[in-house]
Design a protein around this nucleic acid. Structure first.
Lengths: 193, 193
DNA sequence: TGCTGACTGTTCGAAAGGCAACAATTAAGC
DNA sequence: GCTTAATTGTTGCCTTTCGAACAGTCAGCA
């Protein structure tokens, strides 16, 4: 039931060629022929793997979407109460090996396929759940805090995607003040630095 | 009569996998199975392209040998009298794109397959011809000067292979003094710096 | 000495990919 | 509006690659 290596290889070749091409021109200007030429595959083979270039894009984007969902699920379950720090850290570490691909896909904004936007939505949902689990709050609207958390989170992800994980500990440390300020809005017992 | 792209692809995959493996262990310890595993090709395919791993090594090495021969031939013909500088420069520039592969192959020393050694011999022949063309010399043995020139040339090539071409002009400039000193042995009319 | 495991080199049917040709659609320029 | 060129999907035949099995070689070892 495992795939023939040839399938794995051609899909790998097609996908990396596709991503490379996206660094040279926008998605609309990338043709199937371009992809085949660069990946050294024939068009008939391309169409035996994908419906068209939209399908290709969709599948790659879906792959990273589910990767993020799995990471969030997994780490959310074993999360010690309130330890948002380690959740953020783990998710980012898991993503780091794919940072080039994600960086490229973040530039693609097609009507129904937008990795950056779906990342934002996933994180937003996660934040809303998190805030609501912390108990009822009165002073500030939940949505606002969720927006704030999501923004912070996305900014961090984008930073790591473009700069790598070398300075990650320092970066997380420096934004911890902001994070704590956000969390203070929903939990008065949260200790300050 | 042009090759099927599949052949080109598998040979490319096999060769790059092979070179990568050579960076982790010596040639003797690299098995055909290793190469196939890394390159995602089956052993039956490997043997339909190469007789064995020695044949593979041999073909890659031969490729770079002929590349050097062609470069030398080509530039030796259009060489302005005495303009050794530009010959050296052109040869090195042509080699630069392959520096990683050459660097790896320079570490392999098999009985009948040794890229570094054959580079040295090629350059040595070239230097001997060059010296003899400059007219008869009396004081110093031709072989000694050819040895000196070859050493200098090989050192320069190795330097570029490991450090890249960024500082090439500066490096060539700084060794020009040595080169001129060598050339002074065979041609009294050679102007000094 | 004989056993074992790893590697070699070869074989063959089945699966995948390449190539070339095709009609159909789209975009650009005159 | 018409023409031309480029791109898209699709098809059938042919070539290459895969995978798994096989016997043969060799080194280490009990």
């Amino acid at each position: 039931m495992t795939k023939d290596v040839r399938k794995i290889k051609t899909e790998r070749d097609i996908q990396t060629a596709f991503l490379e091409l996206l660094t040279t021109r926008p998605f609309t200007k990338v043709t199937v022929s371009d992809i085949c030429q660069k990946s050294l595959t024939s068009r008939s083979t391309f169409y035996s793997h994908y419906l068209d270039k939209y399908d290709l894009l969709d599948r790659i984007v879906t792959y990273y979407q589910t990767m993020l969902v799995q990471q969030l699920d997994q780490n959310f379950n074993q999360m010690v109460a309130g330890d948002l720090e380690s959740l953020i850290h783990k998710v980012i570490i898991a993503m780091a090996p794919h940072r080039r691909a994600i960086q490229i896909l973040f530039t693609v904004h097609e009507p129904h396929v937008d990795l950056k936007e779906s990342f934002r939505q996933l994180l937003h949902t996660e934040w809303r759940h998190y805030i609501q689990k912390q108990g009822p709050i009165h002073e500030v609207p939940v949505e606002l805090i969720a927006d704030m958390g999501t923004s912070m989170h996305m900014t961090l992800i984008e930073w790591v995607i473009t700069h790598g994980t070398d300075s990650l500990p320092a970066v997380i440390e420096s934004i911890s003040i902001i994070r704590k300020a956000i969390l203070l809005q929903i939990d008065e017992s949260q200790p300050s630095p």
